[in-house]
Design a protein around this nucleic acid. Sequence first.
DNA 1: GGAATGACGATAA
DNA 2: ATTATCGCCATTC
Length: 111
Amino acid sequence: MMAAERRPMDRDEYAEAVLNVVERIPPGRVMTYGAIAEYLGLGGPRQVGTVMARYGGGVPWHRVVNATGRLVPGHEAEALKRHRAEGTPMRGPDRDRIDLRAAFWFPDERS
DNA sequence: GGAATGACGATAA
DNA sequence: ATTATCGCCATTC
């Protein structure tokens, strides 16, 4: 079996799964909340966001951005700093938003 | 049980 | 390009 069975999991398991995926995002690449939800086949973008808000402290949370390339609300300064440090493709006049076209990553693509 | 909430997303203006 | 609204969906009040 390769694909994870998509049967309902407990909240903690779900959180585990989400964090697990986030940890696999390579430096300089990002994933959107929606993409993570799609990959898991469970919940939605908001559920992923909720998990990150609660348990995201231990993973590279800055590599998770919203679909518009916006950085994490409330932690923009920190996230921006880290992205500059790892050379994530940025956009905008101040290079303060993610260039999704270049930085978007999905599991299996093997950096 | 129903309303409010939220680290979202797509669309309208 | 930016902001405002509405739709989603599980948790929390």
